[in-house]
């Protein structure tokens, strides 16, 4: 299998592969460089592993837990996005048990805030919605929480609707790692955690926001959107991310 040229941010540019690891994913043999993760190898070889917080071009946080896989010899499930390959590794990316856990995690996300797909700007272009369908979800069997979440439309071009936020922190990471502004961060903790701009002020008043819109486009759901879109009209464009990462690395 051909090694990829994509380099994860946060890792040093790779020296010529001194050694190659061979591993099995779902019974098939693959080879990879030692600094590559299970997800890297799976992605290169078109093996689907579900995930929501991960986005190619951003650092990995291992927070959504959808990419957990079974690795022979480990009694714990391991997140594919941050687990490095090793020689002789045997990975199972799907099993009835994993499928059940993944469905439950998606269900929990749906119960956490108010995800009303039918009236969402991202309907039809939403990673959460798509993932739910992909994983065979037809309903949520945990009760919904119905929190009162606000919508901040103070920015002249963008809107944040906390009803749709799944706290993946892609916006936090893209703003910090790519744009370098660190406008976004997470406040509070646990079920009350929330993304905020600056000192939890209205986004439109932010002194640090450059209005670049990267956060909007990496957002997996309709939480961040551009103004002027009706239901189902907000399509995200993410092609800039691998490009910016590549250009940045070539400058170093």
């Amino acid at each position: 299998m051909s090694p990829t040229n994509v380099v994860k941010p946060g890792t040093k540019p790779v020296q010529p592969a001194s050694n190659v690891k061979t591993l099995q994913i779902d019974g098939k043999d693959f080879s990879a460089r030692p600094e590559e993760t299970i997800l890297d190898v799976a992605r290169q070889n078109k093996i689907f592993i579900p995930r929501l917080c991960e986005l190619e071009g951003l650092s990995d946080v291992g927070a959504c837990r959808l990419c957990l896989v079974e690795v022979k010899g480990s009694n714990k499930l391991l997140p594919a996005c941050v687990t490095r390959v090793y020689e002789g590794m045997e990975v199972t990316t799907n099993s009835p048990r994993l499928a059940a856990y993944r469905r439950m995690i998606i269900e929990l996300l749906f119960t956490e805030r108010n995800h009303i797909c039918s009236v969402c700007v991202s309907n039809g272009h939403c990673d959460l919605q798509w993932m739910a369908q992909k994983l065979g979800l037809t309903h949520v069997h945990f009760p919904y929480r119905y929190p009162k979440a606000n919508v901040d439309a103070s920015h002249e071009r963008f809107v944040i609707d906390h009803n749709r936020c799944i706290l993946c922190t892609r916006c936090v990471r893209v703003c910090d790692e790519i744009e370098g502004a660190h406008v976004w961060d997470v406040m509070g903790r646990g079920i009350d955690a929330k993304v905020v701009t600056d000192l939890n002020e209205a986004w439109g008043n932010s002194e640090t926001c450059t209005s670049c819109g990267k956060c909007v486009h990496v957002c997996p759901t309709g939480a961040l959107s551009e103004k002027g879109h009706a239901v189902a009209e907000m399509e995200k464009r993410r092609h800039f991310l691998p490009y910016l990462t590549m250009m940045r690395e070539s400058q170093e």
Binding site: S118, Y144, Y146, K148, A149
Partner: peptide, 19 residues
Amino acid sequence: VSLGDCSVTANVPGMRNAF
């Protein structure tokens, strides 16, 4: 049979729940 988002998720009728 639960037919449609309103019966499956509460959907738009459920938007009042937070208030």
